[in-house]
Computed example of a mutant assay.
Amino acid sequence: MDVFLNTYWWVIFLIFMALLGLIFSFEKKKDQQGKHVSQNYIDGLKAMIEGDEHGAFVKLKQTVNEDSENIDAYIRIGELMRKKGQHQKAVQIHRQLLLRKNLDSNVIALIWKCLASDFISAKKFNMADEILQKIAKEPAFKKWAKEKMLEVFEKSYQWEKAFEIGKEIYGDKEQQERLAVYKYLAGAELFKSGEFHKARLTLKESLHYDDKFAPSYILIAESYLAENRKEEAAEYFKKLCLEVPKEAYQVFYKMEQTMFELGQFPEVESIYRKMLQQCPNDPDILRSLAVIAEKKGDINGAIDALQQVVNAFPDDMAAAGRLAGLYLENGQKQKATRLLQNIYEQSPLKKHYYACPYCRSETTKIEMVCPSCGKVGPYKRV
């Protein structure tokens, strides 16, 4: 009988606890269903999407005044502070969030990411790097952290570190061309400080990643000239001409001068002829051949070369002007007159332009770091 009673009361107790659990679960669900997302929060997000940063800030501030547990609203307020250049306030907001207890691990990682962005924006690169090293240990955020580290090293001109991170990030050939840029920039720093041998080693490494990267050939040759090693300089000028003929116009004058001093000037014409096989009608090569022909007294040869330029590039006023002069010297006044009619005093000289691969801004010289958007990349001739 006692055993029966004990069993009976245990069953009653278990039924009671089960009912209590159901009631608690129902009340909790009911409470969750009754909790609405703040209208101010929704309006704040809409304002951010529409680009109304002031309106977003006002609505998000009202949101956190109503609900201090809305972590996302605080995060976004910090981001708005950063955009306004108020970096210290952004850092303060995001740091205070990390002091809260029971935050989800993904939320914590998001706050750390915001802090890293705050420090990058404030140009406190060492502090940003310290945080990014921590974030990179989390597999889910490793890629993002590495990309941000690369941004930090680019903005702080730490080219060797940028190169090492770039090796981890970049996979395809086009992306790996950027590794050549980092090595070039590292070599350029060594060149400026007079460490010519180290500069050459670094610049030659850049050519392993992009064997068509003209600036590296040029600076290697310049480093040899700085040490009065003209034969080695001439070799790299020649390599540039044969490997990247479209960019070699930048060194024509120095190459001719160097090879003249070495007693190798007759070889220059042969180099230009080989280049012309790769780049028919290239105006820079043809103009240089015309100059050599003139120096040799071969006026007809100079005229032939310049005629090719003018036929292919009618807007090349420099070539047209010189050709008109040669016509006059050669007694071909009628041809000179017709050509001169097409030349105007204010006509601009033909220039080479290079475009940033990111913002597409153009410059008349090769830039390693874009003066407009600040990004690093191999610049292409347009």
Rank of each mutant, 00 (worst) to 15 (best):
D2S: 05
V3E: 05
F4N: 10
L5S: 12
N6D: 00
T7A: 15
W9S: 03
F13M: 07
I15M: 13
A18V: 06
G21Q: 07
I23N: 09
Q33W: 15
G34S: 04
H36G: 05
Q39K: 11
K46Q: 06
A47V: 10
M48Y: 14
D52Q: 13
D52V: 07
A56E: 12
A56V: 10
F57M: 03
V58N: 07
Q62H: 06
E66Y: 03
E66A: 04
D67G: 04
E69F: 07
N70D: 10
N70P: 06
I71N: 04
Y74D: 04
Y74W: 12
L80M: 13
L80W: 10
K84A: 06
Q86N: 04
H87Y: 12
K89N: 10
V91R: 05
V91H: 07
R95V: 02
R100S: 12
R100V: 10
L110N: 13
L110T: 13
I111D: 10
W112K: 14
C114E: 10
A116S: 15
F119Y: 00
K123S: 13
Q133D: 09
K137Q: 09
E138V: 15
E138W: 14
K142D: 03
K143P: 09
E147R: 11
K148N: 07
F153D: 05
F153W: 13
Y157S: 15
K161S: 00
F163Q: 00
I165Y: 06
K167N: 09
I169Q: 03
Y170A: 00
Q175Y: 10
Q176A: 04
L179I: 05
A180F: 03
Y182A: 05
A186N: 09
G187L: 08
G187D: 01
A188L: 12
L190C: 00
F191C: 06
H197P: 03
R200W: 03
L201S: 11
T202K: 03
L203M: 07
L207Y: 00
H208T: 15
D210Q: 08
K212T: 12
S216T: 03
I218L: 00
I220W: 11
E231K: 14
E243F: 03
V251C: 09
K254N: 09
L262K: 07
P266W: 02
P266E: 01
E267A: 09
Q277K: 11
Q278G: 06
P280A: 11
N281F: 04
D284V: 01
L286E: 06
R287Y: 15
I292F: 08
K295G: 08
A302T: 01
I303H: 05
I303S: 02
D304F: 12
V309H: 00
V310K: 02
N311K: 09
P314F: 00
D315A: 01
G321R: 02
L328P: 13
N330E: 05
K333W: 12
A336V: 10
L339F: 08
Y344W: 12
E345N: 13
S347M: 14
P348I: 02
P348N: 04
K350P: 00
Y354T: 06
C359V: 04
S361T: 11
E362C: 04
K365W: 07
I366L: 08
I366N: 04
R381N: 08
V382E: 09
